[in-house]
Simulated assay, not measured.
Amino acid sequence: MQPMSLLIVTGVLFVGSHLALSHPLRDGLAGRMGERGFQITYSVVAIATFIMLVQAWRGMPPEPPLWVVDDPLWTLASLIVLFASILFMGSLIGNPALPAPGAAKAAEAAPRGVFAITRHPMMWGFTLWALAHALVMPTPGQIVLSAIIIFLALVGSAGQDAKKARLMGDAWLQWAARTSFVPYARQIGGAAPWADTIPRPHALLGGTVLWLIATWAHGALGYMVAGIWRWMG
């Protein structure tokens, strides 16, 4: 199988298994296997298909970039990854979308910080992270990999909306009515103040630290030097 074909096939397996186990197959399998058994199976399948996807991507032959990557583009990509890191860290606390016992209680709170930006900050963090990588590594293989991650994150978020509405009922519907799927949509539409979108300290500090460590690790692990480290040293 050609390297690009293998990348696409493993991408379909990764996305397809994730969406199938998260939605149409979940209730039936969890009922037969028990919640713990299902979670173990889900994790094994997710990890295995992700490893297959990464190995297929690593097996791509050298490809010429589709456009010139200069300092302005690196600056843009670095800022996108910083914003994505802030969204991700902010999503870890008080997130009604996570499978936590206090999800319904969290949905009663007024949307603030990253949740005023979007009700799916974690998934948009993954989306922006993938987009930034495609910007600065514009090879066909990287663009396909980024597209796979973006598709899974956004389609998964839409599926999560439907699942949460079924599981949480009015609590989620009211949360969805006070938040937006697309970042800043409510602020642009005049339905919510921009001041609400200021990230909280744990998101801002945690996201910045994550960004600094992750971009430093790029160079330390032998990949392209990223973030502010490109202009230091």
Rank of each mutant, 00 (worst) to 15 (best):
Q2W: 07
I8V: 13
V9G: 02
V9A: 09
V9Y: 12
V9T: 05
G11L: 04
L13D: 00
V15N: 03
A20K: 15
L25T: 03
L25I: 05
R26W: 11
D27T: 07
A30D: 01
R32F: 05
R32M: 05
R36S: 01
Q39S: 01
A46Q: 06
A48N: 05
A48C: 08
T49Q: 11
F50Y: 08
I51C: 13
M52E: 00
A56Y: 11
W57A: 04
E63A: 13
E63T: 02
D70K: 06
D71F: 14
L73M: 03
W74T: 06
T75I: 10
L76A: 07
A77W: 04
L79E: 05
L79C: 10
I80P: 06
A84P: 00
S85A: 14
L87P: 15
M89S: 08
M89E: 10
S91L: 14
I93H: 12
L98F: 04
P99M: 13
A100P: 02
A104I: 05
E108Y: 10
E108W: 10
A109S: 11
A109K: 12
A110D: 00
P111A: 04
R112Q: 12
F115P: 04
I117V: 13
I117F: 13
T118A: 13
T118L: 15
T118D: 12
R119L: 08
R119D: 00
H120G: 12
H120W: 14
H120R: 15
M123G: 01
G125I: 02
G125D: 04
G125P: 02
T127L: 15
L128F: 14
H133A: 11
M137C: 03
P138S: 05
G141E: 01
G141S: 08
G141N: 06
I149R: 00
F151I: 01
L152R: 10
Q160E: 14
A165K: 14
L173Y: 02
Q174Y: 12
W175F: 14
W175V: 00
A176P: 01
R178D: 08
T179K: 15
T179I: 13
S180A: 15
P183Y: 12
Y184P: 13
Y184A: 06
Q187H: 14
I188N: 03
I188D: 00
D196V: 09
D196L: 12
I198G: 02
I198F: 04
R200I: 00
R200G: 02
L204Y: 11
L205V: 07
G206M: 15
G206V: 12
L210P: 00
L210A: 06
W211M: 13
W211Q: 10
L212V: 09
W216D: 00
A217D: 03
A217Y: 13
A220Y: 14
A220I: 06
M224V: 03
G227R: 11
G227D: 05
W229G: 02
W229P: 01
